[in-house]
Nucleic acid binder design. Structure first.
Lengths: 206, 206
DNA sequence: CCACATACGGACTGGCACGTTTGTTTTTTA
DNA sequence: TAAAAAACAAACGTGCCAGTCCGTATGTGG
């Protein structure tokens, strides 16, 4: 058999993947340990072994995993400003509306406001999201342009669940917005590489 | 005592208000009958009397109630195009970030994708939201500009729960976006009346 | 005034999810 | 190779929530 750390890593990965899938497809209210384990193909004992506090240990790791993945792909493009990153993410959403790690993060983030314990154990990693993904400097207020882009990004992510959702229409509407918001020139240079790296990494959702 | 229909109306209103408050403050995952009743100051028996199927009868009425309120305020401004309505809502969010009926609707809407029964019983009223609030014509694909505004509106609504939320900063970022998106001239004429009507109706959240 | 319907309060119950414990297998290490 | 630790599996108990039922009170129509 495999080494212990390999098995451990594999099991944790399966649990994280399953959690993301459920969050994206069904939302936080549908998230339960039984369901996660069924989908991951592991026992509840295994989940509780790796994450003794259940969701309170699991969900911070879920967020961190998604953040690491996105941040490392960003890092491979070289140093980027906050605005460049946000425009790239918007173009990414435009090109591949299926790739929706941000939905899982949004679900956890919104659920945390109704669960003090969850809010506590995810606070650190959510601060990391702001810093590493959105380039937000901890003490400072957000830049207007950056915040507007974040809002647009979040809203566009959620639109996927609207009854009148249409990938092409969403793409057209984001393009309409982009034409007026003047992304920095560097973005269009980086775009092919960025989209290619997004296509290469297997999507979280089948 | 009051007449029966008066009592009935009052109780239902209390339940709807309490539900909205919980949804806005804590999210859908924290929504339970016990909690709703506690907050509304009525018994579970009363809730089950007016809404025999629990949330499946209550939540469609919640959405409809919020929709009616917003739509009637819109109607009092005279006939408006979809774009004019969306810009007005964005300005409304900008001016009073506390008034967040849209968050409650978003919560129910997102929860519905993980609960087939909820999706079924809310489908009709959500279609109404698209038509009456966003001016979406049922068969047609959405206009790019309109959809972009919807995304921005939804994203900005959610930003309220971010750890770096700041009403003034959000206002500045929406203003930044507005300056580039060129709202129709009629909007700025209607704005004072619109904001005044928003301020007059008591906010759903204390 | 009486029969009835409606509005409401409260209790009972079943199921499900979570927290915990205990047992078994596999790998590591001394 | 034997002991220990880790990875997993499975069951048990408990608490909460929703679905249901029944009792009561208050209006309502005849």
């Amino acid at each position: 058999m495999a080494t212990q750390s390999e098995r451990s890593f594999l099991t944790q990965n399966r649990l994280i993947r399953a959690t993301v899938d459920i969050l994206v497809e069904q939302g936080y209210a549908a998230l339960g340990e039984q369901r996660i384990c069924m989908r991951a193909g592991v026992s509840r004992g295994a989940l509780r072994h790796h994450y003794p506090q259940g969701r309170y240990d699991l969900l911070p790791n879920v967020v961190e995993s998604l953040l690491d993945e996105e941040a490392s792909r960003m890092a491979s493009l070289g140093p980027l400003s906050a605005k460049e990153r946000l425009y790239l993410m918007l173009y990414g959403l435009m090109a591949m509306p299926k790739r929706q790690a941000s939905v899982a993060i949004l679900e956890i983030w919104m659920a945390a406001r109704g669960d003090a314990k969850l809010a506590r154990c995810t606070q650190a990693v959510f601060d990391d999201v702001l810093v590493r993904l959105f380039g937000h400097v901890p003490g400072q207020p957000a830049d207007p342009e950056e915040l507007a882009l974040r809002c647009l990004l979040h809203g566009a992510s959620l639109h996927r669940f609207s009854s009148d959702y249409d990938g092409e229409v969403l793409q057209a509407s984001l393009r309409w917005a982009m034409e007026r918001l003047e992304p920095p020139p560097k973005v269009s240079q980086l775009l092919p590489t960025w989209l290619e790296s997004a296509a290469r990494t297997e999507p979280a959702l089948a």
